[in-house]
Amino acid sequence: MNSLEGAKLVIDALNKLGISYMLVGSMSSNLYAVPRSTKDADFLIETDDRIDDLQDKLKPQFRMDPQIGFETKLMTTKYVFLMTDSAFKVEVFLLSQDDHDQQRFARRMKQSQDGRTIFVPTAEDVIIQKLRWARQKDLADVADILDVQGDDALNFDYIYTWCDKHQTRELFDKIRTSDELR
């Protein structure tokens, strides 16, 4: 099984188990930007009550790392599933108490195509989160989202409200006006 099939397997398993989830990370920004290669799929789940069921459903194509991780930026638990036939990885984060984490999960949307459904964050919430991480690739993703979505499709008031809370307004304005990035 390759990474593409592995990603589909995880999405379908989350839906079948009825787990409240949302796709986050680079795969979610691909929805709003210019798609790029992603070596992992990141998901946010509301509770980890059914993590063992998910583990069973993904066997034998995935094995769960027995060591439960911790995500230090949002201070939350992280479960890592490694694909056996590929270098692809799935990271499942437990919804944290962080205000924006709670809000982006509450605002998540359903996307469907060809009989498959995925719950995703809004474009604005992807931008807000990418600005918090602020790695080179995150900033490039923000510029791509702005270009692909266009100014009319985005709620800038909402983005700036969170930027002010996260002190990322200056960074966001820099990307919006940058000739290098856009």
Partner: peptide, 20 residues
């Protein structure tokens, strides 16, 4: 990118990763 379907855009990530 604008012409691709939503799930196709999402799944392009692992697909491109497979090629890489």
């Amino acid at each position: 990118a604008k012409q691709m379907g939503p799930i196709d855009r999402i799944l392009a990530g692992p697909d491109l990763f497979d090629y890489a």
